[in-house]
């Protein structure tokens, strides 16, 4: 499945990913419809399941609100690829089931609107628009388990059922 790239700059903070005024509800559609609203009004209208967000350094800085990660998940965002992440966003994203890739090389080789083939298990992103192929360090198995279960809560539920 091809994904589209939504690319942004550095220091994208949790207030623009999900503005504080929308913290009054946990409803998925509501959160999804306001994702990135203060940065890019087109985002929530145009984003398709499987798309990826690409950003410069310090993505997700600011507050510890988990909704900043979950709103992206509810939009169907498959992964966020950034040069670096703010610590709490990085954790929250994984716990909400979002793939987070730290790779300056990948970021530099991707442009807004590019079509890509995102191959997580092998750690390869193929930029179909430019033809360039990049490798990234795959996430540890343990983290992949959480992401594949759709987040930490689901992961624990499944684990408890199997035990």
């Amino acid at each position: 499945m091809n994904s589209k790239v939504w690319k942004y700059g550095k220091d994208v903070n949790t207030d623009v990913i999900l503005p504080g005024r929308y913290l009054d509800s946990y409803e998925p559609d509501y959160l999804a419809s306001h994702a990135m609203e203060d940065l890019d009004k087109e985002f929530s209208k145009g984003v398709k399941p499987g798309d990826i967000v690409v950003a410069d350094s310090n993505f997700g800085c600011g507050s510890s609100r988990e909704q900043a990660a979950s709103c992206l998940r509810y939009c169907g965002v498959q992964a966020v690829v950034a040069k670096s992440f703010a610590r709490l966003f990085y954790r929250n994203a994984i716990n909400q089931g979002i793939t987070v890739i730290e790779s300056p090389e990948c970021v530099d080789a991707l442009n807004h609107g590019d079509e890509v083939d995102f191959n997580l298990p092998d750690g390869i992103i193929k930029n179909l628009t430019t033809g360039k192929e990049m490798k990234f360090r795959p996430l540890p198995e343990f983290v992949m388990e959480i992401i594949n279960s759709g987040g930490l809560v689901n992961h624990l539920k499944q684990k408890l059922q199997n035990d």
Partner: peptide, 19 residues
């Protein structure tokens, strides 16, 4: 500091993943 979801997991299991 950690998020609320992961704290719920800590309450359940006593475990936490950390980089």
């Amino acid at each position: 500091g950690i998020g609320a979801t992961e704290m719920a997991a800590v309450w359940a299991t006593g475990e936490l993943w950390l980089k």
